[in-house]
Design a binder for these strands. Structure first.
Lengths: 200, 200
DNA sequence: GAATATGAGAACTTATTGAGAACTTTATGA
DNA sequence: TCATAAAGTTCTCAATAAGTTCTCATATTC
């Protein structure tokens, strides 16, 4: 995991610039841009550094092509190191199955992410500032958290309980909030929560 | 993940134009419209760009058919659709900055994922079955959740409070569990939690 | 002193871009 | 149906931009 790159100062700087540029613009820099970015004027020198980085295995190049480089990184989500925190137990390796589950969450085309504001679902472990991954669909599921559009205007996260064909009960996961009953015309189920992400 | 498409400037511009046009008019543009849209006069050149995009896997073409192209969907994490659930407010678009934050969580080389068992951190919103993303490091942070190895044997998630140079207090986020004080020799800080994922 | 890291910039090769002609295929309406 | 217009396809020529290779020069390190 920790491989020491043996890069010179400027090579390191070049790598960092390419990394930063790529993240910012979604494409790789030109040699002239690299030169400027690391504080030199010669694109020939920039080219020398890029070739050195290729030799060190830090990136791959496509000769002659404009912006023809690709950073070498870990490409798979969570591939690197996975384990299990037992209640006092040792760390265990996880199965491939679990890894695929995680990847599916982020690549499924019928799902999207929303940022949560408010504490109405806190007892379900969904906190203010969390991201929820929502799978599109209008079908309600018992004991699943749903994304609900009310009056074509307000969006909210709630559990759903069907009362009768004309009314729906929306149940928050927070004792401080009340359950509310709506007529079915006013609410539209956008999807249900299949995953959740939090950043500290 | 950083697998940027290696498109030239004009190819990129062509792609963006097609995307914009498709969204606006609900159909794909003509070659002449593309040419005009990217600021050139030759439909032959526009055709060249469309073919390049097909080769790059960004769209599919139906030969000779008018408006005969279909955009290929993005596979990137969270790229598709992002919004914000306000407390009753409308859905908002999020910034690129937030997208990068999320991507960073899953690609950072100094972090790894662990599966949580047990409820000792439930008041911090970390539940049984969740995944936590851990960034390696031995430095303790106040009010951050840490991965702690005890007696080189047991792993646990806890808050840390330093009592004195010889002792450390480990604080769970669950009133049913007790705080425990260990001598510093017995505990080893493995890292702190920077992210969290849950799958429903 | 030799090896290495660094920088400038000239000279060269290749890729990208643009215009437009000539052609083939598709769409459309009398 | 079928002529015709419209759209897609292929091509050459040319200009420019970007990548590549090179020499020369100056520090710095061991």
């Amino acid at each position: 995991m920790t491989d020491y790159p043996l890069l010179t100062n400027k090579e390191q700087k070049t790598y960092e610039f390419i990394e930063k540029y790529s993240k910012k613009y979604g494409k790789h820099p030109l040699l002239n841009e690299i030169a400027k970015g690391i504080g030199i004027s010669s694109k020939g020198v920039a080219h020398r550094y890029v070739k050195a980085l290729e030799k060190a295995g830090k990136l791959k190049r496509i000769s002659n092509k404009h912006r023809g480089m690709t950073l070498q990184e870990e490409k798979s989500i969570f591939l690197k190191s996975l384990g299990k925190i037992a209640a006092g137990g040792p760390i265990e390796a996880i199965t491939d199955q679990q890894r695929i589950e995680l990847e599916y969450l982020f690549t499924n085309k019928r799902s999207y992410a929303l940022k949560v504001t408010g504490d109405s679902m806190i007892d379900a472990g969904i906190c203010d500032g969390d991201w929820v991954i929502v799978e599109e669909g209008t079908k309600p599921y018992k004991s699943k958290v749903h994304v609900i559009l009310i009056d074509n205007q307000d969006v909210t996260l709630k559990f759903i309980e069907k009362i009768n064909p004309k009314e729906i009960k929306l149940v928050p996961a927070n004792k401080k909030f009340k359950e509310i009953i709506y007529s079915v015309e006013r609410v539209s189920i956008q999807g249900h929560v299949v995953g959740q992400v939090r950043i500290y």
